[in-house]
């Protein structure tokens, strides 16, 4: 039994079968990559995991509990954090505030009315946030407005916001898209380090094969909403079906 069990999930958008009979099992404390051509349904699958979409049929179990029918904040409180394909951060807030919000969510749950105490009297949480920012090399930017940063920085911030919650399962949707090569390598190193230090399971969607093969222990190839193969990186590399999915029938 993996920590995440996806069984027979189907999702249609009108006439489009975005997901067809998807089965996926992610073992605890591993990194599982999901790859596939554009429009394969990768993001749709993640949406079904975090409560953004509800699958038409099938089941999604996390840590022995079903996530279906739960709201996004309940699913997050179960221990799933997600980095989106286009950066989702609090643009009007400073980097530090962006980091504090997940800290509060982790400590106080989905709602707490601290209306009087000042944010910055929360020294414990601030230290956590600063430490995490240090790890992603962004401590010097902590007073900046999040919206004014580069796309790559926004992605790193979003990842830091997820990591500071110490999730059991981290979902990454193309975390290095739009990043400079050096930042990509830093991200890889960071994820590797986190994986060694903590108990964390990672599911990553990525087009950059360098990232995939650096991190993943298992890879699922998705095409037109259906998993083609699931195997170790070594076996995936030369797999004819994978070539076919990426390059079309001719290959």
């Amino acid at each position: 039994m993996g920590i995440l069990e996806v069984k027979d999930v189907n999702k249609r958008f009108g006439g489009l079968q975005a997901l067809g009979n998807v089965n996926l099992s992610v073992a605890e404390n591993t990194c599982h990559a999901i790859i596939g051509p554009n429009g394969a349904g990768k993001s749709t699958l993640l949406n079904c995991l975090v409560g953004k979409l509800i699958p038409d049929t099938g089941s999604v179990m996390f840590d022995g509990q079903s996530v279906l029918g739960r709201t996004p904040f309940e699913i997050n409180q179960m221990g799933i954090s997600r980095v989106f394909q286009t950066p989702e951060i609090f643009g009007d807030l400073t980097v530090m505030e962006n980091m504090l919000i997940p800290c509060f969510a982790k400590r106080d749950g989905s709602f707490a009315l601290h209306g009087i105490r000042s944010v910055f009297s929360e020294t414990g949480l601030r230290e956590q946030a600063e430490q995490m920012l240090e790890e992603v090399n962004m401590l010097d930017k902590r007073h900046m407005h999040a919206a004014s940063m580069s796309r790559g920085d926004k992605r790193r911030l979003e990842m830091a916001m997820c990591l500071v919650q110490k999730p059991k399962l981290l979902l990454l949707d193309e975390p290095t898209a739009g990043m400079a090569r050096a930042d990509t390598n830093n991200t890889i190193d960071l994820l590797k380090e986190i994986k060694e230090k903590r108990n964390i399971t990672i599911a990553i969607i990525e087009h950059d094969m360098h990232v995939v093969f650096s991190l993943a222990e298992r890879i699922t190839v998705l095409a037109q909403g259906t998993p083609l193969v699931e195997d170790t990186p070594e076996n995936i590399k030369g797999h004819p079906k994978v070539k076919e999915a990426y390059l079309g029938e001719a290959a």
Binding site: P72, F73, N76, R82, E88, I101, S110, F111, M161
Partner: peptide, 8 residues
Amino acid sequence: RLNYTGLN
């Protein structure tokens, strides 16, 4: 983002 960060 707030909802996916675990806040209602």
